[in-house]
Design a binder for these strands. Sequence first.
DNA 1: ATGGGTGCAAATGCTTTGCAAGTAC
DNA 2: GTACTTGCAAAGCATTTGCACCCAT
Lengths: 149, 149
Amino acid sequence: MSKANKEALQILKKYLKKNNMRYTPEREIILNEVLAIKSHIEADSLFAKLHNKGVRVSRATVYRTLDLLIKCGLAEKNSFGQNHAHYEPIFGQDHHDHLICNFCEKVIEFHNEEIERIQNQICKNFDFKPLSHTHQIFGVCSDCQKEDN
Amino acid sequence: MSKANKEALQILKKYLKKNNMRYTPEREIILNEVLAIKSHIEADSLFAKLHNKGVRVSRATVYRTLDLLIKCGLAEKNSFGQNHAHYEPIFGQDHHDHLICNFCEKVIEFHNEEIERIQNQICKNFDFKPLSHTHQIFGVCSDCQKEDN
DNA sequence: ATGGGTGCAAATGCTTTGCAAGTAC
DNA sequence: GTACTTGCAAAGCATTTGCACCCAT
């Protein structure tokens, strides 16, 4: 397990203890699976992925644990304007933001250091301590612009 | 009708004609209702609002028309981590982004011209035509940092 | 042993869709 | 007249929940 994963696990354990909740194998497995995600994943895909690995956790537990990880500050939930959520790890990953096509629902990731820097400056101005953020730009992707006429 | 509303109506009509779609009273009514929204609204509240005014449109038409307005670039769809969508007009409104406190849920608005400029540049790089965006920074506000142990 | 956690399946609730009737063009 | 739109109700689908059993502490 990577150093980052161990650190994340400590955050989870601390949160559980603080809230009189149990440390279970399911919670550890799901945490590690989420941390391994490079971009984002739907709850159902995560469920399927675990099943393909032979891990038997219920869909309900996947949903319940994802909520838990969000409360811990280890994951974030995005909807991209669709009617199902996407989840992604916050911890130990490069942060990226999203361009979302209103037509084909394609999601393009981007990262811009200067925006992050300005953001931090804005937070400083408001004496606001940033923990995570979502930055989504909706519009029409290259492919859909061509089909548009 | 305001000048902005007329302009929005032209955008809708142009889109409809271009796509061989009909200009119907339902579509105009819903457009105007959406343009009147100051912040954001749920589809079902919009439906209820119309009914209270004595306008008889079906829930299906409300949903279908909201999708249409999004495709026109006149409205945007957000879900703030909840499992139902919120809609808001894009047209003729001042744009602002949000700092959201995870503890007291206070919302601080900000606007930064430089971020907008960089965003446009990023879109250009991806040949992506931006229509709207949401930029939310989650964290701890000034007041809650003081109370934080 | 105790009370929180899990799996299952049913329920929930927002949203979409099939179809017949209506209407813009 | 044609074919796009609407309303209605049913269906769809992601997510949540009730409950009996399980297990971390």
